[in-house]
Design a protein around this nucleic acid. Structure first.
Length: 466
RNA sequence: GGCGCGAUAGCAAAGCGGUUAUGCUCUGGAUUGCAAAUCCAGCUAGUCCGGUUCGACUCCGGAUCGCGCCUCCA
């Protein structure tokens, strides 16, 4: 039985779909004015794992992951780079897809872009104006009237009155109330714009998600997710918009992924302490990064630190070492797994608010049993197939073990050179020249390569995680 | 200041009112020409102070510390 921690109620709840067997899941994506950082990767991977798991359990999942491709930062960056805004966004969308592919993130069911939903956005803004929840200011901006929505603050536990105290009042503000937020922004000279009942302009940030969720998922969404930093104001504003317009509950289960930290602080654009995905992948294998990010629960903050990445590689080393002799074994099918205790433990862990850490712990148990079963090839192959099947749900363990183990590390020495030294060493061993054999071992170890002799006289090698 | 989250062994990170989490590290043993890998065994826990309970790391209260949101942010 699937349980999900709901930010709205601050507790784990038994999941009940709106439509039997179906789940709609809307996840806030990225504003594409720069390369994605690994904080973005954390959220994307968390929901990728959730999507993979839900599908594996037979749910008919509609996973919507949007792209914000028009906003102030995009316009500013395009001006800085003297580039058209849509060229800029196209470039960074390509980069994002590239990063996602490398990290094993499967494409969502739908990937709507704000600029493709201008019509529905205007329609929604219009509805809100007509219902008295929004108003057009005299400069062509349209604002949401926060005090018109009684439930405002329910997601983030904010008190509307206290928000007034902290609200920023800008010079020349045309809002009725400092808490009001923009639905439609009048265009200045030269800015990209679309025509609307209020003149040329562009959508505000929050309304695009309300509009796209409505079009892609319907008026009510099963699961809506994103980074924890979107809880307020973004998701709070989405609720205000959608519930005021639709007249009923917008989202049943709100899920928020904890921030990734650097030196104990949140990694973010504004703090400028972020590492882009491509920077990180220069240094670590994609699967190592992915494994690191799923090694803790999605609601726990994790620290991006070298030691933790090395540990992730060490964990994967254990998995891939166990799978070494079974590169030809295919992941078991779900029907083959039905009676497996490992599978049951895995599903139980994942059903408990997607506890990947506990799921992995069970997979390590499976590794031990697999290593113990090496004298029973049939059983061993069966266990290897199970392990790969569980790995597939998490999006890991699908590489060829030798390829994985021989990649990464410092790469001080080429694979061909390693192979050559191994040939020389095997000859030395045959000649009982153990001093020479040990010398080669030491030399390679200094270059981060570990040799592993086997009983039949062959030698396997891998690169160390450091 | 308001709202919220967390504090677990050398490190990382989970569940659980009483029974081994797990991974890495470390120690001993098996194995190995030496190693590595693997297996077996073991060592290190629950920030502090109270309370509830036969019994608390687990529930309740308080303190301390850390973090997030309150402004664009996944």
């Amino acid at each position: 039985m699937l349980q999900i921690y709901n930010t709205l109620t601050r507790q784990k709840e038994i999941f009940k779909p709106i439509n039997p067997g179906k789940i709609s899941m809307y996840v806030c994506g990225i504003t594409v004015y720069d390369y994605c950082h690994i904080g973005h990767a954390r959220t994307s991977i968390a929901f990728d794992v959730i999507a993979r798991f839900l599908r594996s359990q037979g749910w008919d999942l509609n996973y919507v992951h949007n792209i914000t491709d028009i906003d102030d930062k995009i316009i500013r960056r395009a001006n800085e780079l003297n580039e058209k805004h849509d060229q800029l966004t196209a470039r960074f969308i390509d980069a994002m897809h590239d990063d996602e592919q490398r990290l094993g993130i499967l494409p969502p069911s739908v990937e709507p872009r704000a600029t493709e939903f201008i019509g529905p956005i205007i329609e929604l803004a219009n509805t809100l104006v007509q219902k008295g929840h929004a108003y057009a200011a005299n400069n062509g901006d349209v604002y949401y009237r926060v005090t018109s929505f009684p439930g405002y603050g329910k997601l983030s536990d904010k008190n509307v009155d206290e928000l007034l105290a902290g609200a920023r009042i800008e010079v020349g503000d045309v809002k009725e109330d400092p808490r009001d937020f923009v639905l439609w922004k009048a265009a200045k000279e030269g800015e990209p714009s679309w025509s609307s009942p209020w003149g040329n302009g562009r959508p505000g940030w929050h309304i695009e998600c309300s509009a796209m969720a409505k079009k892609c998922c319907g008026d009510q969404v099963d699961i809506h997710g994103g980074g924890a930093d979107l809880q307020f104001p973004h998701h709070e504003n989405e609720i205000a918009q959608s519930e005021a317009a639709n007249g009923h509950q917008y989202v049943n289960y709100w899920m928020h992924v904890a921030p990734l930290r650097v030196d104990g602080e949140k990694m973010s654009k504004s703090l400028n302490n972020f590492f882009t995905i491509r920077d990180v992948l220069e240094k670590y294998q994609p699967e190592v990064v992915r494994f690191f990010l799923i090694s803790s629960h999605y609601r726990s903050p994790i620290n991006y630190a070298e030691d933790n990445l090395i540990e992730a590689r060490a964990g994967l080393d254990r998995f891939y070492t166990a799978l070494r002799d079974y590169s030809d074994v295919l992941p078991a099918s779900l029907s083959e797994l039905a009676d497996s205790d490992y599978y049951k433990a895995f599903v139980q862990a994942m059903n408990d608010d997607f506890n990947t850490r506990v799921a992995l712990a069970g997979m390590f148990d499976l590794v031990r049993d697999l290593n113990n079963a090496k004298n029973n090839p049939e059983q061993a192959r069966n266990l290897a197939g199970q392990l790969k099947a569980l790995g597939l749900v998490l999006g890991v363990l699908q590489e060829n073990p030798e390829v994985f183990l021989q990649a990464g590390g410092s790469n001080q020495i080429a694979a061909a050179e390693v192979e050559q030294l191994i040939v020389e060493r095997i000859q030395a061993k045959k000649d009982k020249l153990y001093a020479r054999a040990d010398e080669i071992r030491k030399e390679l170890l200094a270059a981060g390569v570990v040799l592993e002799d086997s009983r039949d006289g062959t030698t396997q090698w891998r690169r160390e995680s450091t």
